[in-house]
Design a protein around this nucleic acid. Structure first.
Lengths: 237, 237
DNA sequence: CGAATCTTTGAAAGACGTCAACATTGGTGG
DNA sequence: CCACCAATGTTGACGTCTTTCAAAGATTCG
């Protein structure tokens, strides 16, 4: 299922290098990463790494989107965040030396580079630039998570949905597609599992938002029509 | 209000050293910390560091408990976690170089050591043992946070309360007081802000738990009577 | 083209928050 | 040391947000 690509292109030429954790590395250091990695093709819906298993390495997304989620005690998925091109995945549990708390699964056909654990750890601890960069990133993410916890605990579903939509726009927008609809390969259920609500509730709220001209939808395409309005609904920032 | 203590005892002799982030340091390294720190007395309810301000240094709790919380958009506190003796606070936003996402406030009279930013950062990046230790801890905490997010999103208040009670027992229990009631200086409102619910709902649920002989209460003292039962209610582990 | 999956809508029950009133407690000044 | 005030705790009633269950459309993919 996991097809190995014939060509293993250089990280230095990766168009997402500047958005990655490797953006501050010098040529030699980048080359170390390049030599350690291998790149593979994953079909939509494939799992990169499983919850409750030990990390085997880290994943760097070259093409496609990945949903990172945790399965709760009752078997329902909670999407923690969506990762996109350039993002590094699966390193946190590796560093803390425990099983994955979450799983990572492609939501569209993807191309993902893999660096085996031993190699990554070795590079990580002999490359201060990378070490510092990742350390910072992890600390930043902790702050973001406290924000999410607070929102989950205090905000009603409607506001959380508005936030998620705004977030998705950010995750999916590039310079080129600024005003195009977000084509997210997320089912309504996924979306509900991101917001933290039931699928039916999510659908009803999307309906409301459409009536209020905040968004338009066409199947799984969602177009944000009124960012300001959404932000107001979210009672955010 | 913040009284400086006359004696500045050595970290090496701190009885909580073994539970702290400094547990793996050698004598020299411990001494660096010792020389950088100063220890102060804080009265119950004092704020160690404020949300949305830049970190000035890190705090190591020598005596007392500290609630770490974030004020949401509607002004309500969300308690993220409770810190106890030996815990290090306020370093994450320092490392990620941003304003605090949370605030830290004593919930009982406390004695807290402080290490100024410049000194701590300097020690952190010239002491691989400490660096690695903290890095690991931060990554671990991220995993814990994903668990919290999932619980907040998926579990009803009743289950979350049960979890919080079990958590509090862990936070407050020492070898000596295993079966004593938890004397937590948390108001019902604080407790509600930890669980993520309204004060009235929290009180009603505590009442239920009492009826089911899961706990007994006496003012702010809460005694866990049936850990197994609580775990069952929590639908946990 | 048909099975399977996903989406949407309706109706009803339940969980939870809010408001208001009242009780209790703890801290403070006299 | 006591009395009093303000903060905290408790209870009831009520409304609303949300979930759940059921069933009917729509879409997708083999």
């Amino acid at each position: 299922m996991k097809k190995k690509l014939l060509s293993n292109f250089s990280c230095k030429d990766c168009k997402y290098l500047k958005n990655s954790m490797f953006d501050e590395l010098n040529d030699d250091e980048i080359n170390n990463i390049y030599e350690a990695k291998s790149c593979s093709f994953y079909k939509k819906g494939q799992v990169l790494f499983h919850q409750d298993t030990y990390p085997l390495g880290v994943y760097c997304i070259n093409e496609g989107k990945v949903k990172v989620y945790k399965v709760g005690d009752d078997g329902k998925e909670q999407i923690i965040y969506l990762a996109r091109e350039g993002n590094l995945l699966g390193y946190k549990s590796m560093i803390s030396d425990e099983k994955y708390h979450v799983a990572g699964e492609t939501i569209e056909d993807a191309q993902v580079c893999f660096i085996p654990k031993s190699m990554f750890m070795e590079i990580l601890f002999r490359t201060p630039t990378l070490n510092k960069r990742l350390f910072k990133e992890v600390c930043h993410q902790l702050g973001v998570m406290t924000d999410i916890i607070t929102n989950m605990a205090q905000k009603p579903v409607r506001e959380r949905l508005a936030i998620v939509l705004l977030l998705l726009k950010e995750t999916y927008s590039t310079a080129s597609n600024e005003n195009e609809p977000i084509v997210l390969n997320l089912t309504r259920e996924d979306l509900a599992n991101f917001v933290g609500t039931a699928t039916e509730t999510l659908i009803r709220l999307l309906h409301d938002f459409k009536e209020d001209n905040l968004i338009t939808t066409n199947g799984r395409k969602i177009q944000i029509e009124d960012t300001t309005g959404l932000r107001k609904v979210a009672n955010w920032n």
